[in-house]
Computed example of a mutant assay.
Amino acid sequence: MPLSTISLHDKQFTPYLPAARIAEAVRNIATRLNQDYAGQQPLFVVVLNGSFMFAADLMKEMSIDCEVAFIRVASYQGTTSTGEVKEILGLQEEVANRHLIIVEDIVDTGHTMRELLEQLTARKPASLEVATLFTKPECLQHQLELRYVGIELPNEFIVGYGLDYDGLGRNYPDVYKVV
């Protein structure tokens, strides 16, 4: 069935990335993680709310022993980043000397990721990497090493597959861009 335009709040969104393309990107990230962390039992630190679909699909593809923890941060209001990171729900697991992989839906400005990397580095993990489904390289305002990236995107606001516009749109299996 062809995808159609959707309306969320006051904006229109057109089809952008089909679920099949997203699934391929998730499998590619999982393949690399399975190879790179074989025998190491990493802790995946999932950033809520946007990463829930990506994290669930990624975990289904993991063949290594691993654990999952969740944190929640916020830096968006409407369609733009506020530039201010607020930790809402913190990480309770001990992370010192553990291999950590931050699972993020999208890295655009890099404000949230920079803050997370700083906070987690202070807890002295054995290693710390980022697995992000999407990144917008032209939006990055911080030097970040993103080792596991699914899809690089231009600077367009997107919803679907966990990403939202003021709370709506997370439930779509495909990704849509604002008109």
Rank of each mutant, 00 (worst) to 15 (best):
D10S: 13
D164E: 15
L91T: 14
E93A: 14
A25H: 04
F134C: 08
L89V: 13
V103Q: 02
I158N: 04
V45Q: 11
I6C: 03
L89S: 07
L100A: 04
L116C: 05
Q141T: 13
T121F: 00
T31H: 05
Y176F: 15
E24S: 07
S63V: 12
H99D: 15
G83W: 11
V45F: 07
I106H: 06
L43R: 13
D174W: 03
E115F: 09
S63H: 11
S51D: 06
P15L: 03
T5G: 00
R32Q: 05
E152G: 03
A25L: 01
E118F: 01
R72T: 13
A38Y: 09
D57E: 15
Q41D: 13
I101S: 00
F157R: 07
A74Q: 14
L89N: 06
Q141V: 03
Y161E: 11
V103P: 00
Q141C: 08
V26Y: 00
E94V: 13
R147G: 12
A126I: 05
G78T: 10
E61G: 00
H142G: 09
L91E: 13
R114A: 13
T109S: 14
Q77S: 13
F157Q: 07
N49T: 11
L144Y: 02
H142N: 10
D108I: 10
Q141N: 12
D108Y: 06
L168T: 04
L128C: 02
A56E: 08
G150K: 03
E93C: 11
G83I: 13
A19N: 10
R27M: 01
P42W: 01
V73Q: 00
P154G: 05
I6V: 14
A96W: 00
G39S: 10
C66F: 14
T109N: 11
P15Q: 08
M59F: 08
A30L: 01
P2D: 13
A30F: 01
H99C: 05
L146V: 15
D57R: 08
E93F: 10
L144M: 09
I158E: 09
L146H: 09
E87Y: 07
S127G: 04
H99S: 14
Q141D: 11
A19V: 10
F13A: 06
Q41G: 00
E104S: 01
Y16A: 05
H9F: 01
I71H: 00
F54P: 08
L100T: 04
I29N: 01
G150H: 05
F52A: 10
E93K: 15
F13V: 06
T121M: 07
Q77Y: 06
A25R: 06
I151S: 03
G39K: 05
R170M: 09
L100S: 03
R21H: 09
V68H: 06
S75Y: 07
I29S: 02
A55F: 05
H9T: 02
H9R: 12
A38D: 13
A56P: 08
M62G: 02
F52Y: 15
L43I: 09
G83C: 13
S75T: 15
A20R: 11
R147P: 07
V45S: 12
L153T: 12
Q141M: 10
T135V: 06
